[in-house]
Simulated assay, not measured.
Amino acid sequence: MPTPERERMASELQAAMQRSTMFTVLLHHATATKAGMNVTDAQCVHALSLDGPQTPGRLAQLMGITTGGAITAVIDRLEKAGYVRRTRDPDDRRRVIVELVEESADRFDRYFEPIGRLFRERLDGYTDEQIALLLDWVRQYSEAVPKVIDEVRKRP
């Protein structure tokens, strides 16, 4: 049974995570606006940066948008702006792969330099063991969140 102190800390941590998420969303709005794109387009750039080239269907699933016109419009905008290119899958020429144009992605990444600097500064106060614990927690949390997103999307 959780102690009252553990319950208090868990509630504080949850509130802190909610605040952090709020600021992350605001940061992504600010960076997308500076880059001249909307947040969905920017998140597609992030997904490609983190996970490498993907099919339009995979990007649509990740963004929670339709695989027809909506993802096509996103890719069209990103391609026109020079952020992505469409290539053919070498194993299946009928299949399209979307990949980042590195030079443009680097230009977009510059908007995140201040948060990267803040992140590194905050880590300076932690031991390697503490950082390893944080890394483990964030990895496990991030692995679980897509299921929560799916659950929320399915709700009436």
Rank of each mutant, 00 (worst) to 15 (best):
A15T: 09
L62M: 13
E121I: 01
G69W: 13
H28W: 05
A32W: 14
T21S: 09
A32M: 11
R86K: 13
R6G: 08
D76A: 07
G82F: 08
L133N: 09
Q130Y: 01
I71H: 09
R153G: 05
L59T: 04
P4Y: 11
E12L: 14
G116A: 03
Y141F: 15
F119S: 09
G64S: 03
D150C: 06
G69M: 07
Q43F: 04
V96M: 04
T24H: 12
A15H: 08
R110P: 04
A32P: 11
T31C: 15
E129Q: 06
R88V: 15
F23P: 00
M63D: 11
M37D: 05
R19F: 15
E102Q: 08
H29M: 05
V45L: 11
A47F: 06
D124H: 00
T67C: 06
V84R: 02
I71W: 10
D41F: 02
L27H: 14
P4N: 10
T33R: 11
V101L: 01
Q18H: 10
A10V: 12
T3K: 08
A132Q: 13
L78V: 07
V74K: 08
L134P: 01
T87E: 08
A70Y: 06
R86D: 01
I97A: 03
Y83H: 07
M9A: 13
R77K: 13
G64Q: 04
T3W: 12
T72V: 03
E7M: 14
H46T: 02
S104C: 03
R6N: 11
M1L: 11
M17T: 05
L50E: 13
T31S: 14
P56W: 10
